[in-house]
Amino acid sequence: MSTQRSFAETLVAVAWSFAGLRRKRDFDRDVGALNPLYVLAAGVLGCALFVGVLLAAVRFATA
């Protein structure tokens, strides 16, 4: 039986998934333990951070 993961653990899992470096063993362990609302919030936060980094890089390159 797996326990519920914290928001910080969910952020780490989503960050590794964004990078495409998630091990199958970790994925299998997290499937039933991640809170879907935490995953959604982490995904939105990750996307916003990614877009922000891209915008900053474009501003830096064109300045």
Rank of each mutant, 00 (worst) to 15 (best):
T3S: 13
V12M: 10
L40I: 05
A57E: 09
G46F: 01
R25L: 07
F27Q: 14
D28H: 05
V53E: 08
V12Y: 05
L37R: 15
P36E: 07
W16I: 03
A61I: 00
L21T: 08
V14A: 11
T10C: 13
G46M: 03
G52K: 05
A42F: 04
G46T: 02
G32N: 10
V53N: 07
L34W: 08
M1D: 13
A61T: 03
L55C: 10
L40Y: 04
Y38L: 07
D28L: 13
R5T: 04
L40R: 12
T3F: 09
R29Q: 14
V31M: 12
S17R: 10
S6L: 06
G52N: 06
R5I: 02
A8T: 12
N35P: 01
R23K: 11
L45P: 01
Y38D: 15
V53L: 15
K24G: 11
T3R: 14
T10D: 05
G46L: 03
V14I: 11
L11D: 07
V44H: 01
E9Y: 01
V53P: 01
V53D: 05
A56F: 09
L34A: 08
C47K: 08
K24D: 15
L40T: 10
D28Y: 01
A13F: 14
K24P: 09
S2E: 06
T10K: 05
V14L: 04
V53G: 03
E9V: 01
L11P: 00
N35H: 13
A33W: 00
V53F: 12
F50T: 10
S6I: 06
F27I: 14
C47A: 12
G20Q: 06
G32M: 06
A61Y: 08
L37D: 15
D28N: 11
L40M: 11
R23A: 09
W16V: 09
L54K: 05
V12F: 08
L45S: 11
G32L: 09
A42R: 05
R59A: 15
R59W: 12
M1R: 13
V44S: 03
D26P: 00
V39Q: 09
A33L: 02
C47L: 12
T3Q: 12
F60D: 12
A15F: 05
T3W: 03
G20E: 07
G52F: 03
V53T: 11
F60H: 13
A61W: 07
G43F: 01
L54G: 06
A61G: 11
V58T: 07
R5C: 02
F60Q: 13
P36Q: 08
L55A: 15
T62F: 13
A8G: 06
A63Q: 14
L45T: 11
V14P: 02
R29K: 13
L11C: 14
A56S: 13
A19N: 11
F18N: 08
V31W: 04
G52L: 04
T10A: 10
A15S: 13
L55E: 10
T62P: 00
G43D: 03
G52Q: 05
T62Q: 14
A33E: 02
A56C: 06
K24I: 12
V58Q: 01
A57F: 02
A33V: 03
G46I: 01
D26V: 07
R22W: 03
A48E: 01
V39R: 11
R22M: 14
G32P: 02
A13R: 04
L37F: 13
G32R: 07
M1E: 13
E9M: 02
A56P: 00
A57R: 12
F27D: 14
P36S: 09
L49Q: 03
A48L: 11
